[in-house]
């Protein structure tokens, strides 16, 4: 099989997979819809973090700032200004993007571990500030008003179309939004990384000075990625908290839920590869379903798995798989044309 037919095949499979996923609310159970919603939202967070840490070399531990601000902006839109939750989700994304500008301004002066700590500190500042926002409950937090999710734009139509209860219809709606967000994030990520800018980005990650010497502007590119991933993370945060229906500073800005788990997912799946987060999120989901009832043991096991993979499979599960089998999905390497026939002929 040639490379081009291989990639055609993987495209067909990808389109089919998305179609099947899109049909889940019609053919599957509500439990399945809600599980996949969690999986897809975690995937979006992981894809965004992977773009930052895996491709731009920006190891942020402050992504919860964008999840939280997205959630709070969405709640503000719904509760204080009477918006429908759907436009309020967009507001969440925009708020996160705006927040990312000052955060980038300060943290981009730092490198490596200092940058990581800088982002974490920024997220804490945002959390403490939100705890002072009395109109949204301060440190107590607040719930979405009764019936909000059932009156969302589109829920009535879905209810009629599928013949289900309004709660199931609102589940379906948020699920489709999560699916769209995940597919768009993956696609945009792929196209971006395949573009000239993406090449520049990876050059910066590998050696800033060398990249600069061939005319890549590191600051501009990194800032662009930081702001765009903040937008995606903020949208995802707003969407998540429509399902959770209750926001409080500790929940919205939880470093464990929205950053530590996301790092775990990306690292075990394969950081710096596009399918990595997809594999990681599936592994994480299975572990959570099997182990979450065991309390602290669950977190210890997660930690141990993370350590083992970092020690023995540095490129994560997907990296290991690619190395062993030579199969690549969504490849990001650029091969020169004359070498193609001799390299990995594949048959």
């Amino acid at each position: 099989m040639t490379n081009s037919s291989k990639s055609t095949l993987s495209r067909v499979i990808a389109v089919l997979a998305v179609l099947v996923l899109a049909l889940v609310p019609v053919i599957g159970s509500r439990a399945m819809v809600q599980d996949l919603f969690m999986v897809l939202t975690l995937l979006v967070l992981a894809l965004n973090w992977n773009m930052l840490a895996g491709f731009a070399g920006l190891v942020s531990v402050g992504q919860q700032a964008f999840v939280g601000i997205g959630a709070y902006a969405m709640f503000g839109g719904v509760i204080l200004w009477g918006w429908d939750p759907l436009p309020a989700i967009l507001l969440g994304g925009v708020a996160a993007m705006l927040l990312s500008l000052p955060i980038a301004f300060f943290t981009f002066r730092l490198n490596g571990a200092y940058f990581a700590i800088g982002t974490w500190v920024s997220a804490e500042i945002v959390r403490l500030s939100m705890a002072q926002w009395k109109a949204l409950g301060g440190g107590t937090g607040t719930s979405l008003p009764k019936g909000t999710t059932k009156e969302m734009i589109g829920v009535a139509q879905i209810k009629e179309l599928l013949g289900v209860s309004s709660s199931a219809a609102s589940d379906a709606l948020t699920y489709w939004l999560a699916l769209t967000l995940a597919v768009v994030t993956l696609l945009v990520g792929y196209l971006f990384l395949r573009s000239r800018m993406g090449l520049g980005l990876q050059a910066i990650r590998d050696n800033v000075e060398a990249a600069r010497s061939v005319g890549v502007d590191p600051l501009r590119l990194k800032a662009l990625v930081f702001v765009l991933t903040a937008f995606g993370t903020g949208l995802c945060g707003a969407l998540l908290f429509i399902q959770i229906t209750r926001v409080s500073p500790d929940a919205a800005f939880s470093v464990v839920d929205w950053t530590a788990f996301v790092i775990f997912i990306t690292v075990i799946g394969g950081i710096g590869t596009l399918p990595g987060p997809v594999v990681g999120v599936l592994v994480f989901y299975i572990l959570q379903r099997v182990l979450a009832d065991y309390g602290t043991v669950y977190l210890i096991v997660l930690g141990l798995i993370g350590i083992v993979i970092m020690l023995f499979a540095r490129k994560g599960l997907w990296g290991m798989f690619t190395e062993k089998t030579g199969i690549e999905l969504l490849p990001l390497r650029h091969r020169s044309l004359q070498h193609r026939p001799s390299q990995r002929s594949g048959n």
Binding site: R30, Q34, Q243, I244, T245, D250, A251, S254, D257
Partner: peptide, 18 residues
Amino acid sequence: DSQSNPNRAAEVARELIV
């Protein structure tokens, strides 16, 4: 177990119901 975490409490409530 809510693990003392409001996000987890919401999640397990959904699990119980659905």
